[in-house]
């Protein structure tokens, strides 16, 4: 993808999401992160549990009220948005697919009502017949059939439930979908089916994805660009090939060296890189700095030369200082 001319759909600046602010047990779940997502791309967010990746997704879609910072969606500031109509439009444009297909569908609602809930709220159906037709179309889109509409969630397998969750998200014709670990609860053979479905929908509907996951090989496969999070901070951002083939931050290197690979020869010779979080201590102010064009690393001013040298050693053309 040509990043220089791409349109930014989402601009996150200095986003902070703290919990229990001012109390003894204050948690800085997301601590001053900034990144952009371009139109039509898949941005993968990786990190270990507790790194703040899910909180970031939830803060963006406004399930939480961010502590501070700015989130612009198509140029419109979302934090503190008071205009009811604009807010409703935002909620239509941005939808979410949840991790656990067993917990994210109401067990007492029929599939057609689950899928059509957004249609009803936004008054998108002209008549009952239109509503049924839209539901049937959505189910067909995600690979289910119209007979499934009158069943309850417990009658479906995990993969099918996740398809229902995807149909629900698509019902309001969103432009942007946040998928929070959408496949980690599924079996390997079913994971590939769901990932292929998500990719197909993206091509057909020109969707933009924020894909949150801890399975690094899957994130690498599905994403155009990747952000690596740790302790609530964004440590590295770049195209997925760049981040995986030429990781600059020590944490990214350590994380990648721990990914199990289905190749016994590789596994026998693998060495795991230990991580020393000295590049994250609180004593210095650190921000994302563009070391190689479109490849950012969180560092302080005096660490920049080290990363530039590291990138040069890898044979990358570092960004002009300016």
């Amino acid at each position: 993808m040509e990043l220089d001319n791409a349109k930014k759909v989402l601009e996150v600046r200095h986003l902070k999401q703290y919990f229990n602010v001012g109390k003894r047990d204050e948690v800085k779940a997301v601590d001053d992160i900034s990144f952009d997502i371009y139109e039509g791309e898949t941005f993968g967010l990786v990190g270990e549990s507790g790194s703040g990746k899910t909180t970031t997704g939830r803060a963006i879609i406004h399930l939480y009220r961010p502590t501070s910072g700015s989130i612009k969606f198509n140029g419109q500031e979302i934090i503190g948005l008071k205009d009811h109509q604009k807010m409703q439009q935002f909620r239509r444009d941005m939808q979410m697919i949840f991790q656990d297909p067993y917990a994210s569908l109401n067990p007492r609602m029929k599939v057609k009502d689950i899928v059509a809930e957004g249609i009803d709220i936004n008054h998108l159906a002209k008549s009952d017949a239109d509503r049924s037709k839209q539901v049937a179309d959505l189910l067909a889109t995600v690979g289910l059939n119209r007979d499934h509409a009158s069943r309850y969630p417990h009658e479906f397998s995990g993969g099918q439930r996740q398809r229902i969750g995807i149909a629900r998200a698509l019902a309001v014709q969103p432009k942007f979908i946040i998928a929070d670990e959408p496949i980690s609860a599924l079996d390997v053979s079913i994971q590939a089916q769901v990932v292929n479905l998500l990719k197909k929908l993206q091509r057909e509907r020109k969707l933009t994805y924020l894909f949150i996951a801890h399975d690094l090989s899957m994130v690498k496969y599905i994403s155009d660009r990747i952000g690596v999070m740790h302790y609530g901070r964004m440590l590295e951002v770049g195209t997925s090939d760049e981040v995986y083939n030429h990781p600059l931050h020590d944490y990214t290197r350590s994380l990648l060296s721990a990914v199990p690979v289905p190749d016994p020869e590789f596994e026998r010779t693998r060495t795991q890189i230990k991580y020393d979080p000295k590049y994250e201590d609180g004593s210095k102010k650190r921000e994302l700095v563009e070391i190689v064009p479109h490849h950012f690393v969180q560092c302080s001013q005096d660490e920049i030369p080290m990363y530039r040298e590291r990138a040069e050693k890898m044979g990358l053309s570092v960004k002009e200082l300016g």
């Binding site: 053979s189 590939a192 990932v195 090989s217 690498k220 496969y221 289905p262 016994p264």
Partner: peptide, 30 residues
């Protein structure tokens, strides 16, 4: 891993992306 004979094993191995997988679509077991 290197000489699987059963189509199910084939399916399992090829539906997992490795860090080198680039194809447009993942092989999946229907």
């Amino acid at each position: 891993f290197y000489n699987p004979k059963h189509p199910y094993t084939w399916g399992l191995l090829s539906s997992m992306p490795t860090l080198d997988t680039h194809s447009e679509e993942l092989a999946s077991i229907p």
